[in-house]
């Protein structure tokens, strides 16, 4: 068992290393940091540009293997190099990961809990009005891409604010800079900023989770152990919640880990449209700014997140499913 885990971990590390190196090579070839210095007035002397690029390890005249080695030796020591503006990539991304976490936690929790509840209830009343309604709504929501959904939410919020006659919902940023007042006022301000991005994240997630949970629940409802639970005299509600829902939750929980990993870098649209300065926004910005080192660092982080999520979902599965746990003990 330990040997198997060790081999698996080693394979993960190799995957991360190759994926990050590939992303670096691709970014270093396709992006052109020199373009950032062109078209300035007054023009910057070529020698200055060269010196600056060489200092940042972005000079396209240095052969790619040489640049790669310099970058890789930094990464091994935990230093992802510097951004095009000269700042530390580590510090920049470290700040941004906090923003992303504050953004996705509420959305992910709200979306998955709503989805699971809706899906489970729809399965219990299969082909009832609620089942039909939730199926239709989730189909419609799944067809709306995040870019469209987020913009529709903004339009709706502007209309709502106009209707109420006050700026209740705020559409841009994480908090109002220089907001006066104590903790309560600041918290309220943050909450007003958080409503729309959270909705745009959780609606889609709830749709996915409800479809998923409905199928799982339907599989479990016909199982012998649920019938036994009711046959031994448990009330229907108790049998459904304690026996059916608990078992049907296992796949949803493992899926939760994957969503979390994917969202760490995948909330690009929500962050960009609502003006949150997180990882996803930096992904788009770094490509527009020809920021090779940041692009490579984000790929590394994304790979790490995916594999950590895979590992976490395996572990959670083992914790929740007694069959897996017993199998491991034996």
């Amino acid at each position: 068992m330990a040997g198997f885990l060790f081999r698996r971990l080693l394979n993960y590390l190799a995957l991360i290393a190759v994926a990050t190196s590939l992303a670096y090579a691709l970014a270093a070839t396709a992006l052109n940091p020199r373009a950032n210095y062109e078209g300035r007035n007054p023009p910057i002397p070529p020698a200055v540009v060269d010196a600056r690029l060489a200092e940042l390890n972005l000079d396209d005249r240095t052969p790619l293997p040489e640049r790669y080695l310099r970058w890789a030796s930094g990464v091994v020591r935990g230093d992802f190099g510097r951004t095009v503006t000269g700042g530390s990539v580590n510090q920049d991304l470290g700040r941004r990961i906090g923003v992303t976490l504050r953004l996705i936690t509420a959305g992910l929790l709200l979306g998955s809990v709503t989805g699971v509840l809706v899906g489970a209830y729809a399965a219990v009343r299969q082909y009832g009005p609620f089942d039909r309604l939730s199926t239709g709504v989730s189909f419609a929501v799944l067809a709306v891409p995040t870019v469209v959904l987020a913009n529709i939410l903004i339009i709706a919020a502007v209309w709502f604010n106009y209707l109420v006659g006050a700026h209740v919902l705020l559409v841009s940023g994480e908090a109002t800079p220089g907001m006066p007042g104590g903790f309560a006022a600041q918290a309220a301000d943050r909450l007003r900023h958080l409503v729309l991005p959270t909705l745009s994240l959780s609606l889609g997630l709830a749709a996915v989770y409800s479809r998923y949970q409905r199928n799982m629940m339907l599989d479990v409802l016909g199982a012998d152990f649920v019938r036994t639970a009711m046959a031994k005299g448990l009330r229907r509600r108790t049998a459904l919640v304690r026996h059916a829902l608990r078992t049907a939750l296992i796949p949803a929980v493992t899926y939760f880990a994957f969503t979390f990993g994917a969202l760490l870098v995948g909330t690009t649209f929500t962050e960009k449209i609502f003006g949150w300065h997180g990882m996803g926004e930096q992904l788009v910005n770094s490509i527009s700014a020809n920021d090779v080192n940041t692009v490579a660092a984000i790929s590394c982080f994304a790979a790490l997140a995916v594999l950590a999520a895979a590992l976490a979902s395996d572990l959670m599965h083992a914790v929740l499913d007694p069959r897996v746990r017993m199998g491991a003990d034996r």
Partner: peptide, 22 residues
């Protein structure tokens, strides 16, 4: 399988965006 895993680990959106000048 290893190549499949590698492509799963690479962030697709980022790679596609980097290649966009092509």
């Amino acid at each position: 399988t290893w190549v499949t895993d590698l492509l799963l680990v690479l962030p697709a959106f980022l790679i596609l965006a980097v290649m966009s000048p092509l």
